[in-house]
């Protein structure tokens, strides 16, 4: 499923950021959704819970900003803006 594939991709990046920073826990993740991305905010939340279970990002807070400019060249993208890690 596209959602699952996207989420897998997303989780891989989050885990690699955590690893690079030697973090054992991810507290929050900021994500920006393009106006025409293939997932809605609620959909991202629904898929994040199972995808993050058992990972460093389990129960991390998800901040989602949904963009409205449909003519933006990256309107179809999902962008991980930043990751908040526990020191």
């Amino acid at each position: 499923m596209h959602e699952a594939s996207l989420m897998k991709h997303l989780m891989r990046k989050i885990e690699s950021v955590a690893r690079e920073q030697n973090a054992t826990r991810v507290l929050g993740i900021s994500v920006r959704l393009g106006a025409r991305s293939h997932m809605s905010a609620s959909h991202v939340r629904d898929h994040f819970a199972p995808a993050s279970a058992g990972t460093v990002a389990e129960s991390a807070e998800l901040k989602i900003e949904v963009l409205t400019d449909t003519s933006d060249p990256h309107a179809q993208e999902i962008l991980i803006e930043s990751v908040e890690i526990a020191e």
């Binding site: 594939s5 990046k13 993208e77 962008l79 991980i80 990751v83």
Partner: peptide, 24 residues
């Protein structure tokens, strides 16, 4: 708990750009 925010700016996409999903 102390925390730190790491700037990532990473585009997450469906692997490749073309995909077909069929559920049976």
């Amino acid at each position: 708990m102390k925390s730190r925010t790491i700037k990532v700016d990473y585009l997450a996409r469906v692997e490749g750009e073309g995909a077909l999903f069929v559920k049976i």
